[in-house]
Design a binder for these strands. Structure first.
Length: 257
DNA sequence: ATGCCGTGGAAACCACGA
């Protein structure tokens, strides 16, 4: 089973690219982030016509997450990450697909740091840590996938020294990310490519993609019993080179039965 | 080293992203 995550940066603006990539890559399950669309404007018919059933949680201007599945019925658990009642940003979708529990997440960017947005990011990761611990304790097969907006280490960014004060790379954020990993999750892209430079995002300007000035911020974290079943984890990097493309590239894993 | 680009919504600019 091929499971992908893709920050589309606007589902309606990205629809042609998304459909082209679905046709080419043929993922069985897809987590989407940054829909930037209210529910009533979500292009449901086009995605269903491409062969997917969909669960989505849109929002008027920003954020928004969705899960697509070709064969396995999606059973929604939650579209809320517990721990902050007044949080109305659509950034979390937790479902089950057969035996598998899948979380699609869009972690806050957090810039500028320090500031209220950075504080919100730190609180959001702490809430995720709490939920992730609960999920691990159920001994289910769990995958946390999405745009974490966290650069884990120096080799996940083209020029680390330029990013030390950025909310994606600040030490508080990375400490929390590794606190999450220490619960027992495996960062699958890094696990299968320990020495490779891997990026999933390239800025639109300064020819960032052409210069390969990228960041690795889209991740697959998987629970312990799943690790040995995952035979591949890759970035569809060429999609970032398409016309009218997102600033993120799709990322995927292959899960053996 | 910088939202320099891209998107959406509202209103011919602004908020936001990373």
């Amino acid at each position: 089973m091929k499971i992908a995550t893709y920050n589309v940066n606007g589902i309606n603006a990205r629809l042609p690219v998304l459909l082209r990539w679905l046709q080419e890559s043929k993922p069985d399950v897809v987590c989407l982030q940054e829909l930037k669309s209210p529910n009533e404007k979500f292009p449901l018919a086009a995605i269903e016509q491409a062969g997917y059933q969909v669960v989505f949680h849109g929002q008027k201007r920003w954020n928004g997450v969705a899960i697509l599945s070709r064969y396995i019925p999606i059973k929604e658990h939650s579209r809320i990450l517990a721990g902050e009642e007044e949080d109305e940003q659509s950034r979390y979708l937790e479902v089950s697909l057969g035996e598998l529990v899948l979380v699609c997440l869009y972690l806050p960017n957090g810039n500028p740091a320090p500031g209220p947005k950075f504080d919100y990011k730190l609180r959001w990761i702490k809430r995720l840590i709490t939920r992730a611990q609960t999920l691990l304790q159920t001994n289910q097969q769990v995958i946390l996938a999405g745009d974490f907006n966290v650069i884990p280490t120096n080799r996940d960014v083209y020029k680390p020294e330029r990013w030390v004060d950025d909310a994606l790379f600040r030490v508080e954020v990375r400490d929390l990310f590794f606190q999450l990993l220490d619960q027992g999750w495996t960062d699958m892209l890094r696990h299968l490519h320990p020495d490779q430079t891997i990026y999933t995002f390239w800025d639109y300007f300064r020819n960032a993609y052409g210069r390969n000035a990228g960041l690795r911020i889209d991740h697959f974290l998987v629970s312990p019993e799943l690790v040995s079943r995952i035979k591949a984890a890759e970035v569809d990097q060429h999609v970032r080179g398409w016309e009218k493309t997102s600033d993120h590239a799709p990322v995927w894993i292959h899960l053996n039965p």
